[in-house]
């Protein structure tokens, strides 16, 4: 028996909207730790890791570890039927091949339930080692989204270079080149506009623009994004959800052949 109650359906809607275009089908794993997902995109270049901590839910009952295979597009369709301020309850009986999403309006005068078919997904689970990254950048999530979108219109790849002074995003395409430097800056009006650099040594890596753009669909989840890089490691683009957990995107770099 599984029963998870979350007061803000809007959060779950944003989570689904941010990954449904990158990953088609995925297993949601439910354990005492929380409601989590790990999945690769179809070309095995990017990986999504989501954790919604059990203590972030209003009610969390998970009698034993359970893995539920879902089509994320279909799940997103069902969640779109909820209002952002609805309470959502995710329910599944042991051995059932369906999951139920129940939405309750804040005044309790409208209650809907949507039953969705589960699917068997043969997915590979990867071990992600705890790593010390050579460079970590925290910056405005919406600024990062803007940069990825802008550079994506010029070139297919983005070089991200971190130095003590700041982070540089560069691209090159048929029509020309572009460079954006964001200097470290903590003297800002709003905390989320700060650019903070933690760096052991400078790092410069090349990534496919379209994946970075896809990750920025998670921008509504957080004011800041954390970008972690090391040589010969996938970049981590992380959106932390206050009190609930995180959405992490891993992307393998491109290398000179």
């Amino acid at each position: 028996m599984l029963e998870l109650r979350l007061t803000q359906a809007g959060l779950l809607k944003k989570v689904l909207e941010s990954i449904k275009d990158l990953v088609t089908d995925a297993n949601f794993d439910c354990s005492a730790t929380g409601f989590s997902l790990q999945a690769m995109d179809s070309s095995h270049v990017a990986l999504v890791a989501l954790l919604l901590r059990s203590d972030g839910f209003e009610h969390y009952r998970c009698d034993h570890n359970i893995s539920m295979g879902m089509n994320l597009g279909n799940m997103a369709k069902m969640l779109r039927c909820a209002s952002d301020d609805d309470t959502v309850t995710i329910k599944a009986d042991d051995g059932s091949d369906t999951v139920t999403f129940m939405f309750e309006s804040p005044s309790q005068d409208k209650i809907s339930d949507y039953e969705m078919k589960l699917m068997d997904i043969d997915s590979e689970h990867l071990g992600i080692p705890e790593a010390e990254y050579q460079a970590i950048v925290r910056m405005s999530a919406s600024e990062f989204a803007r940069i990825c979108k802008d550079l994506g219109t010029i070139g297919d790849t983005v070089i991200i270079s971190v130095t003590k002074e700041g982070v540089q995003f560069s691209t090159k395409g048929d029509i020309g080149t572009a460079n954006i430097i964001c200097r470290k800056n903590t003297a800002v009006d709003k905390k989320e506009e700060a650019t903070v650099i933690e760096m052991a040594e400078p790092v410069s890596l090349t990534f496919a623009s379209r994946y970075l753009i896809a990750f920025t669909k998670a921008t509504p989840l957080a004011g800041q994004v954390t970008i972690s890089m090391s040589y010969d490691m996938p970049i981590v683009v992380e959106y932390k959800m206050e009190t609930m957990g995180y959405m992490r995107f891993y992307l393998a770099p491109k290398i000179e052949e």
Binding site: A208, A252, P253, E256
Partner: peptide, 14 residues
């Protein structure tokens, strides 16, 4: 030419 690497070449299956 930049060659795209795969996630599976960094993280191993569990």
């Amino acid at each position: 030419v930049n060659q795209q690497r795969h996630i599976t070449s960094f993280f191993s299956k569990t």
